[in-house]
């Protein structure tokens, strides 16, 4: 029997494809916003709808692509996304993470993640979990059967119906940040005196880096 401290429990939607790039997650026309919220309706816009979306539009009149998995009846209300290799590749746009979260996703599980996207997730509290190809295919299968997936972040285990499906790796501090929501900038600023001291030595050694204007 398990002894779990559940971080999240929910149903998952499988996006069975490699290399899902951030242009697909949130197309460029929506990056014009100067806010961090409101991107959810346009998550995977080109796949979710049959027409071309634009910012500020009334989505209630748009034609839904019923084939796309996020629109299929049985996957509505999923808040875990499952995908394959290199999820979040391409553009550094943090809007990709904001739109996944705004849509309601709490966790993304994939075989691997692109570096910048992976960092962006932690900076916003979206939990990315990387597990093996074999474990992903088990989860894809179970999510198709609408089994609830349970994430025990403390012990780094994914359960389905009390069975352990996968153990995952996560940096201990990042785990702490997700669980406790720490202020990254505030934490770095506790090192202010070291930064100043570094800067002083650095400017003595390579003063041109600190030049203010071109001559």
């Amino acid at each position: 029997m398990k002894n779990t401290s559940t971080y999240h429990k929910g149903q998952a939607v499988p996006l069975n494809r490699d290399n899902i790039d951030t242009d697909q997650i949130i197309p460029k026309q929506f990056l014009k916003s100067i806010k961090k919220s409101g991107f959810g309706p346009n998550l995977f816009d080109a796949w979710r709808y049959e027409d071309e979306g634009y910012p500020g539009q009334d989505i209630s009149n748009r034609k839904i692509n019923k084939e796309f998995i996020l629109n299929q009846e049985k996957f509505i209300n999923s808040d875990i996304l499952i995908s394959k290799k290199n999820f979040g590749c391409g553009s550094s746009r943090e809007h990709a993470v904001w739109s996944l979260m705004d849509f309601g996703f709490k966790v993304v599980i994939a075989e691997s993640f692109a570096d910048i996207f992976y960092n962006n997730c932690f900076n916003n509290g979206l939990l990315p979990i990387a597990i093996s190809e074999h474990e992903i295919s088990t989860l894809l299968d179970l999510s198709n059967k609408r089994k609830e997936i349970e994430i025990d972040l403390q012990n780094q285990i994914i359960f389905v119906e009390d069975n352990e499906i996968a153990h995952f790796e996560i940096d201990p501090f990042r785990k702490k940040c997700i669980l406790e929501g720490l202020d990254e900038i505030g934490l770095s600023l506790t090192h202010s005196s070291e930064i100043k001291e570094f800067e002083r030595k650095h400017s003595l050694k390579s003063p041109w880096i600190f030049n203010k204007e071109s001559d």
């Binding site: 940096d171 501090f173 990042r174 702490k176 934490l187 770095s188 090192h191 070291e194 930064i195 570094f198």
Partner: peptide
Amino acid sequence: VSQREDGTYL
């Protein structure tokens, strides 16, 4: 610059 308590670097 330095290593933070979490093991990451500045």
